[in-house]
Design a binder for these strands. Structure first.
Length: 110
DNA sequence: TTTATGGCTGTCA
DNA sequence: ATGACAGCCATAA
């Protein structure tokens, strides 16, 4: 294992661990990344993610189980599209059932 | 070095 | 149920 410098790298690593058909909240990723409750950093890290990154940032959503309205128009729509393509279903209003699609990590936790 | 910003979260009314 | 407020930290300029 290496020691990735920068908090972003850590977040990307966690997001990459999210399986298909599953979603994780910013707070969840933050906790797994070791940030602990600092979900905001996750959002900024993902916002800075380059398109060539193999990080499924679209699998990361807010605690409401919905996609955050980022500053880029259409961005949230594309995220929803990607999730639906993976098999994630949205409720009326574009919300996801966290109780059903929330990613539950097993190994790697203390 | 400091300043400003930001795809969040949790609590209260 | 919804709306509003404050707090935490890293990155970039």
């Amino acid at each position: 294992m290496k020691k990735p410098t920068g908090t972003y790298a850590r977040i990307y690593t966690v997001v990459r661990r999210i399986p298909i058909g599953r979603v994780a909240t910013y707070g969840q990723v933050a906790g797994l990344a070791g940030l602990g409750g600092h979900a905001r950093q996750v959002g900024y890290a993902v916002s800075a993610l380059p398109d060539e990154s193999n990080v499924p940032w679209h699998r990361v959503i807010n605690a409401r189980g919905e996609i955050s309205p980022r500053g880029e128009p259409g961005g949230d729509l594309e995220q929803r599209s990607l999730l639906e393509a993976e098999g994630v279903q949205f409720n009326a209003g574009g919300r996801i059932s966290l109780e059903r699609y929330r990613w539950r990590p097993r190994t790697g936790l203390p």
